Amino acid sequence: MDQVLPTTTRNAVSKRNGGELRALAGRWGIYVFLVFFIILAGILAPSFLHPDNLSNLVIQLVPLALVAVGQSLVILVRGLDLSVSSVMATAAVVGTSFAGTAHPELPTIVVAIIIGGLTGVVNGLLVTKRQVSPFLATLASMIVLQGLRFAWTHGAPTGAMPPFFRVIGTGRWHELPVNLLVLIPIVVIVGIVVHRTVLGRKLYITGGNPVTARLLGYRVTSITIGAYVASGVLAAIAGLVLGGYSEIVDNSVGEGFELDSIVAAVIGGFALSGGRGTVPGALAGAAVLVLVSNIVLLVGLPIQFQIILKGLVIVLAAACYRTR
């Protein structure tokens, strides 16, 4: 008996220490990995740390970060949003449609946000009221928006974005990318709502255990629809920013962002089963994906390696998700 107790105690201590290490890795691992990635990039390509390259990195990061934050809200409530890329392209096309008017900024922003919000409402209703799987519901929305956009533009490039959005997409203010001034307030607001308010706790509980959320009296349907609406609105804003960066808009704006945003969220600590993750983690995940693309270009590898490395990052994300 005297030998059993110490052995049991040692096992308990070992399990506790292992659990604490896993918790620390799950909470801070992405940030450690991001710092390691930055150091590695600086070693492999000294030009990586040049101010101009860092500024370009931020400019490229902002659209993906906006979409990743919106996607993370949907994942938080056990959903997926594949329509974000189509919302982005549609918002950019809207921007070119108002390019010839006297003051295109306000109507472009309003119409783009309405399109993103309505897409989110449709997605949320399909998922909650009709019990359609998030994958199929948002895939259908993506295809419908794509068809409407092709019908509007006749499948051809639609022209240039208004100057206001080109400034937002590529401009700098005191060497600071202008689009960062769009990202920061949005991330701060979303971060406060998710991590410091009752609504944020409801999001986590709804995603972690919808049954418990209903027993507590939470409006699970409204909360889920709200997450999809936020994702659609943020995707629309990202589409305007990315359209300003591209300047000449076609129907492929935002292509691939639906998968990249999901990967960024999962790398950043969000569980596809819902109820777990942080907004800063989603931003860190988006930064990792942008760094991968930048390192490939700086090192001088063929563009195909960018796709290969992104695939490896996705595998790593899947492994991390499985571990969590």
Rank of each mutant, 00 (worst) to 15 (best):
Asn209Gly: 09
Leu54Met: 05
Thr90Asn: 01
Val229Phe: 02
Gly281Glu: 03
Pro163Asp: 06
Pro134Val: 03
Ile59Phe: 05
Gly226Glu: 10
Gly281Ser: 08
Gly254Lys: 05
Arg149Cys: 12
Leu203Lys: 00
Gly116Asn: 13
Arg172Ser: 10
Ser231Ile: 01
Ile38Cys: 08
Gly147Glu: 08
Val35Pro: 01
Leu40Ile: 10
Ser83Glu: 12
Leu106Val: 14
Tyr228Arg: 04
Ser72Cys: 03
Ala102Trp: 00
Ala12Phe: 01
Gly117Asp: 10
Gly269Pro: 07
Ala271His: 06
Val220Tyr: 07
Ile248Gly: 13
Val241Arg: 00
Val194Thr: 05
Ile114Asp: 00
Phe257Cys: 02
Leu289Gln: 09
Gly274Glu: 07
Leu34Met: 00
Ile39Val: 15
Gly217Val: 08
Ala102Met: 02
Pro107Gly: 03
Val167Ala: 13
Ile109Gln: 01
Phe305Ile: 14
Asn251Gly: 14
Ser47Trp: 13
Leu312Cys: 11
Leu34His: 00
Ala102Cys: 00
Thr323Pro: 10
His174Asn: 15
Leu148Phe: 12
Ser261His: 01
Ala284Val: 06
Ala137Cys: 09
Leu309Met: 12
Ser273Glu: 12
Val62Lys: 01
Thr7Arg: 15
Thr224Trp: 01
Ile308Arg: 03
Phe305Pro: 08
Ile314Trp: 03
Arg130Glu: 12
Arg196Gly: 09
His50Thr: 13
Thr323Trp: 14
Ala23Arg: 13
Pro134Cys: 09
Thr138His: 08
Gly232Ala: 08
Leu312Ser: 04
Thr7Ile: 15
Val193Cys: 09
Gln131Trp: 03
Leu64Pro: 05
Ala318Met: 11
Lys310Ser: 05
Pro63Asp: 02
Glu105Gln: 10
Asp81Tyr: 07
Gly207Ser: 07
